[in-house]
Amino acid sequence: MVGGAVVRRGAVVAVLVMLVQMAALIRPAWACGCGAMVPGNQTSMAVREETSAVRWDGRTEEILMQLTVTGDAANAAWIMPVPTRADLALGDTKLFSRLDTVVAPVDKTRHYFWPRDGDWPFGGDHKKPNGASSAAAPGAAAPPVSVVGSGELGPFQYAQLAATDPAALESWLHTNGFTMPAGLADSLKPYVDQGWEYVAVKLAPAANPGGAGRSVPGKAVPTLGGDLDPLKLTFASDKLVYPMRLSQRAKTAQLLRLFVFAPHRVEPVAGIGGGGSLETLYAGKPDPEQVRWDGGQGPAVFLTAMRNELSRPAAITGDYEFRAAPADERYQRVRYHDELLTIGGVPAWIATVLAVLLVFAAVLIALRRRSNRRRWAAYPPRPVAPPRPAVPPL
Rank of each mutant, 00 (worst) to 15 (best):
G91Q: 06
G344L: 10
R245A: 09
L303N: 01
T342E: 13
R312H: 05
L153I: 01
A300E: 08
R48K: 13
A300D: 15
D87W: 07
G226M: 07
R388W: 13
L16V: 14
V384E: 05
L25Y: 06
S150Q: 12
A24N: 13
M45G: 02
L240K: 08
A46K: 01
P230S: 12
A355H: 07
R265L: 00
D287F: 13
G40E: 15
S52I: 08
M45C: 09
I63D: 01
L153D: 03
G123E: 15
L341I: 03
R330P: 00
E339I: 02
V7W: 03
V346M: 09
S247N: 09
R323T: 09
P144Q: 05
G296S: 14
R8S: 08
R369K: 08
P205C: 07
Q42V: 02
T51N: 06
H126M: 12
S97Y: 10
F96R: 07
L184C: 02
A327P: 01
L64C: 11
G71V: 11
G345E: 03
T175S: 13
L224S: 14
G139N: 04
P138C: 11
A377T: 12
R48L: 12
D125S: 11
G123I: 11
P387G: 02
L19N: 00
K251D: 06
V192R: 04
P121E: 00
P389A: 05
W78R: 00
A86D: 05
T60V: 10
W114N: 06
E339Y: 07
G284R: 11
A385D: 13
V54A: 03
P217S: 14
D72G: 04
V201C: 08
L310W: 01
G345F: 04
A390P: 04
R48Q: 09
G40F: 03
M45K: 00
V334K: 12
A73D: 07
A250K: 00
R292W: 01
L231E: 12
K285G: 00
D227N: 11
T60Q: 11
A159R: 15
A5G: 14
P313W: 09
T60P: 02
P39D: 02
R27Y: 07
S134W: 10
M65W: 08
V359N: 03
V82W: 00
P347E: 07
L64Y: 07
A378D: 05
V266P: 02
R370D: 06
L231A: 10
A36C: 03
R330M: 09
P380I: 10
K128Y: 01
Q254E: 15
P209T: 09
P166F: 04
L231Y: 15
P155W: 11
G131L: 14
G298D: 07
G226C: 08
F259V: 01
D125I: 06
L256F: 02
V17R: 05
T101W: 04
G151R: 09
L303A: 03
D100I: 00
L99R: 14
V363L: 13
G210Y: 00
P83Y: 03
A378V: 11
F302K: 07
Q297L: 14
G298P: 08
G318A: 05
A29W: 02
E62F: 06
V6E: 06
Q66A: 15
S247T: 08
Y282I: 08
M37W: 09
P181S: 09
D107P: 06
Q66L: 13
L224A: 14
A327W: 01
A159T: 11
V216H: 11
P386Y: 04
L233Y: 07
A185D: 12
R323Q: 09
V12R: 15
M22L: 14
